[in-house]
Every structure is written in structure tokens, then in C-alpha cells.
Design a protein around this nucleic acid. Structure first.
Length: 513
RNA sequence: GGUCGGUUCGUCUAGGGGUUAGGACGUAUCCCUUUCACGGAUAAAACACGGGUUCGAUUCCCGUACCGACUACCA
């Protein structure tokens, strides 16, 4: 009988949640749902110096936007509360002391300056790996080298100290990563990492093991940057005697820069003009700003779909998956090993696919909002008609209004380039006739077909080939040379408005050549 | 430098001892068309290199190269 799957996403609140972190959260969510388990969120705020106000809310809002909210979190506590490491502070020291007691950790009193001296000394002596380890610790100030009474005295006097793990001199440490298979590391290459800092807070290494154990975490799905410290974590589970309940590990491939090499960073997004964060972010204190996918016009479901395929794929040829379908198709085995370059063009493509599936009514709400922002009133029916016309042609909802606002705002000026090429005597002659026909129109229904047949008849009467003057007709009514089906636009505008606009164009534009 | 990880079209990837190495994005061309798009069709485009193992390796093994992560009292 296997126990319930419990996974956690454990970001630290040091700024806006990076897209790589969002993907990690997503994979954790998908795995938990797939396995019928629980997805928890734990805030790793053991570094008081790096705390950024608002970062936690940002994490919460990001996950909510994507619809992958945790089952348990600081704002939705379950049995494993609390969910902030700063609130779990009291328990860590005892675990560290247990390790000291068992001989797997020790007190160290070295000052930052002394540590620096040690590294310099080692570097000067051409030691390949200047680190605090089984060799060098014998020359440092710690409870392994100092007499017992002196250690007690230093502790009693309140002298600052840290607790370091005592890495065994020679031992093969191995772990079976779900994505990478067996990884083996020799303990001699590991260093005596600090477990408890001098400010009384634990480091990530200690806190994450203690919390994962206490919270009954069964699988640790995290970024590849953690792989090098995974052997240390395995060792800690062993020292605590928790090997039999140690979670399984899965180290996710990194998200890389689109050009060149290296981890995707905020700078890359700024440079290439795309976001690397889910939501807009602003740090009021520092003035730091970052653009978000949501505000750029990406739909949460499209963004989620895109993200899911960055480093994973279900094996078939289908690419459009809803969240539920992703859950159904997900498996850790199908996560790739190699880093993934970030391709914003693909993200846009996903957004287009999703946009086309949205109802006109839904898209119309964007049009109304955008128009209102410009102090322009638009009828809901008009907004919907515009949405219908534009949905197949745009990537973002904001482009619907931007690309079709001439429906509501009659052109005051005209694209000079098109005018100089297409505004000829034939066009003037046809448009004059068409305007007259429109003004005389007394039918009840003026739809696209009617608009078109009337235009066709006018052209026939003047013996003008329609194809030659359509650009001019478009220019007269919309002011520009490109856009969705003109006759559909006419139908929205109505005979009166179309005639009025044609009259204005006729009066404004001069025939060239 | 050391440790660990990685390497299939430009990008994301499928595949896996014998395949015309498949798809998608992007790119190009053509078709459709009242423009621009959409859509449809077509095209160019990949197994990093060298050794093994094998009748046969892109696939398995070992090296090399290259790329990356880590190397803090940060996570």
C-alpha cells in the first residue's frame, strides 16, 4: 500500500516569481493531481536579508491566475501548518542539535574574515577545492578542534557561531533521480555546509530536509540547479535516520536564454522584449519593475499550455491541452533531460490558438475595456461584431480594438502611401455613384451581401473592375489599406455612415496622376 | 579549476539497433482572396565528433569536444 503523494513548491519571496519557478509549480501541480495527491506551497523565507514585501502575494496571485493553487499554503493551512519557514523557526535548532549530539554536525566559530583567509591560503597553496571540509576543518575554530570547555565557554558567552554538517571523509553518496537515473557523488567532494546560521535561522539545506520530512513530502520536484546539493540532502536524511521515508527526487531541466547560452534571466526578457514573469511586478521601495505575461495579453490557459511543453511532452502530435488534459497526460518519465531554450514565438502561437477558440462575447469585453480606456463609447453589439471580424487575425485581445477602432472612429486622415497608389479617377467615379446609391437605399436589411451586391452593381454600371478599386474603397471608409472583410465592416457601419465617410474622403483626397 | 548534468532540423521535440529520422513553431514559395491576415499545400532544415560492441549504429558502451548548473552563514 503506497502512501498519499504529497509534493511541494517552495519558492523564496525575494522578488517576482520567475517563469522557471512557475513551471516547477506547474509540474508539481500536475504530478499531484495525476497521482491523486496533494500539492503544497511552502515559503522559504529563512534569509531575512533578502525578504521583499509583496513577493508572497505575487506568488499567490500568479498561481491563482493559472488555476494551479495549492491544496495547502500559508493562506490555506492544512495539517502541516505553518507554511512559512520563518514561522517554523523554533524547530530547526533542535534538529541541528540532535545532529551535533549524534556526531554528524559541529559548532564553528570562524568569522567571515577567517573563512576568507582560509580560502586565500588554500588558493595560494594551489588547493583545487578551497572549502570547509574534512581536511580543512581540522585547522579551523570549531567544536572538533577546540577543547570542550572552551566550546562551552564560547557558547555560554553568546559568541556567534554556526552549526556545520560533518561530511564523512569517504563515502559514496547515490540517489536515483526520477528524470536522470542514478547519480553518484563521492563525499570527499562535498563541503561542510552551514546548517544553522549565526542569526539563528537554518539554511535552505537544513530547513528543506526537516520540513519535507515533517510535512510528509513524498516527491521533490525542483530545478536542476539543486542537483549538486542533492547528495548533501541524501546524507542529511541518513543522519536523521529518515532514509526509509526520504522523498524521491526529480530535477527539472533549466529554462535557457533564447539566444546564446545560460539560464533565462530578467535581462534577456528586457533585451528581447518579452516577459519572463507571469504578472507585472513593481517593487515600490526600489522602483524595480518587471513585465508580466498576463498584462501583455497572454491568456492563462494558453500560457499554461505553453509552459507545460517547455521540457515535457506527452509523445503524441497534439499540442493543445487544457489543464485537465495536461493532468491526464502528465508523467515525470516524459520530462526531458536537456535544458530548454525559451521561444517567445511559440508562446504567441499558443495564444493565437486559444484566442480563436474564445467566444465573441468574451473577446468583446476586452474591446469594451480598451475603448473605454480611450474615452470612447462602444455598443456591446458592435464590440462583438468587431471581435468576430478580428479574432482570426490577432495574437492578443488588445489588438482587436487597436486593429479595428476605425469602425467606431471615422477616419480624419488617410494612409498617404495607399492614397498615392490607389486613389484614381475610377475610384472617385465609383465611390461617388456608390455613395448616391447608399443615400438612396430604402431596403430594410443592409448586410455584407447587400453592401457587396450594391457595390458590384455600381462598378458594373461604371464599367470598372472591382478588384482595381477595392483598396481605394477601403481607404475611403477606414483610412487604412488593410483590415478584415470590408463588406462586413460596411454592414456594421450602416448605409448612412458609409456614405458619410465616402463623401468625406471624396472631399478630402486629391487624385494623383 | 573541481563536482554533477546535458547534446536529434534555427527553436521545442517524437523516435529508437535495420525508418524516405516524424510533428510543431519560425522561414520561403504557391493556392485562396477586395487588402492584410486566417486557412490549405509544398519546400529548405537535424541525429556534435572519434573509437568500440554488432551482420548493421542516430539508438548500447567508452572517450573527446562543446554547453550548462553548482562551487555563500542565498535559495
Amino acid at each position: 500500500m503506497s502512501k498519499e503523494v504529497r509534493v511541494r513548491f517552495a519558492p523564496s519571496p525575494t522578488g517576482p516569481l520567475h517563469i522557471g519557478g512557475v513551471r516547477t509549480a506547474l509540474y508539481n501541480y500536475l504530478f499531484a493531481r495525476k497521482m491523486g495527491g496533494k500539492f503544497l506551497l511552502r515559503i522559504e523565507d529563512t534569509d531575512q536579508n533578502r525578504f521583499v514585501p509583496g513577493a508572497e502575494d505575487y506568488i499567490k496571485e500568479s498561481l491563482e491566475w493559472l488555476g494551479i493553487s495549492p491544496d495547502e499554503s500559508p493562506w490555506k493551512p492544512g495539517d502541516s501548518a505553518p507554511y512559512r519557514q520563518s514561522e517554523r523557526k523554533t524547530s530547526y535548532m533542535q534538529y541541528a542539535l540532535d545532529l551535533v549530539e549524534a556526531g554528524h554536525a559541529y559548532y564553528a566559530f570562524d568569522t567571515p574574515g577567517e573563512l576568507e583567509d582560509m580560502r586565500e591560503r588554500l588558493t595560494a597553496a594551489r588547493v583545487v577545492q578551497p572549502q570547509y571540509n574534512s581536511i580543512t576543518r581540522t585547522q579551523m575554530k570549531n567544536s572538533l578542534t577546540l577543547p570542550e570547555d572552551e566550546v562551552k565557554a564560547r557558547l555560554a558567552s553568546g559568541e556567534p557561531y554556526v552549526i556545520r554538517v560533518k561530511i564523512p571523509r569517504k563515502e559514496e553518496v547515490r540517489l536515483n533521480d526520477m528524470i536522470r537515473g542514478w547519480v553518484m557523488v563521492h563525499s570527499s567532494t562535498l563541503d561542510d555546509k552551514v546548517l544553522m546560521k549565526s542569526d539563528g535561522m537554518p539554511t535552505y539545506h537544513l530547513a528543506n530536509i526537516v520540513d519535507d520530512h515533517l510535512m510528509n513530502i513524498t516527491h521533490v520536484i525542483r530545478g536542476e540547479e539543486w542537483l549538486p546539493s542533492a547528495p548533501l540532502h541524501v546524507l542529511l536524511y541518513k543522519f536523521f535516520g529518515w532514509t526509509d521515508t526520504m522523498p524521491e527526487f526529480a530535477h527539472l531541466p533549466l529554462l535557457l536564454k533564447p539566444d546564446g547560452n545560460g539560464k533565462l534571466s530578467k535581462r534577456d526578457g528586457d533585451k528581447l522584449g518579452f516577459p519572463v514573469f507571469p504578472l507585472n511586478w513593481e517593487n515600490k521601495e526600489t522602483g524595480e519593475k518587471a513585465a508580466g505575461f498576463r498584462e501583455q495579453g497572454y491568456f492563462s490557459d494558453a500560457f499554461l499550455n505553453f509552459l507545460a511543453f517547455l521540457g515535457w511532452n506527452p509523445g503524441g502530435e497534439r499540442e493543445i491541452f487544457s489543464l485537465e488534459e495536461l493532468v491526464d497526460a502528465f508523467s515525470v518519465e516524459r520530462i526531458g533531460k536537456a535544458g530548454t531554450k525559451f521561444d517567445i514565438a511559440k508562446a504567441k502561437w499558443f495564444n493565437e490558438q486559444y484566442l480563436r477558440e474564445k467566444s465573441n462575447a468574451e473577446l468583446a469585453t476586452y474591446v469594451v475595456v480598451d475603448a473605454t480606456a480611450e474615452n470612447i463609447t462602444i455598443l456591446p453589439e458592435t464590440a462583438e461584431a468587431i471581435a468576430s471580424l478580428m479574432k482570426g487575425r490577432v495574437t492578443f485581445p488588445s489588438e482587436i480594438w487597436q486593429g479595428c477602432k476605425f469602425v467606431v472612429i471615422a477616419p480624419a486622415e488617410f494612409d498617404q502611401d495607399i492614397a498615392s497608389k490607389k486613389w484614381n479617377t475610377d475610384a472617385v467615379s465609383l465611390l461617388t455613384a456608390y455613395a448616391e446609391d447608399l443615400e438612396a437605399f430604402n431596403g430594410t436589411i443592409f448586410d455584407a451581401d447587400t453592401a457587396k451586391s450594391m457595390l458590384g452593381q455600381a462598378a458594373e454600371a461604371k464599367e470598372i473592375k472591382l478588384g482595381k478599386v477595392m483598396q481605394a474603397v477601403r481607404l475611403a471608409v477606414t483610412g487604412v489599406g488593410a483590415g478584415p472583410d470590408l463588406m462586413e465592416i460596411f454592414a456594421i457601419l450602416g448605409t448612412e455612415e458609409v456614405a458619410k465617410r465616402i463623401r468625406f474622403a471624396l472631399a478630402t483626397l486629391e487624385v494623383i496622376g
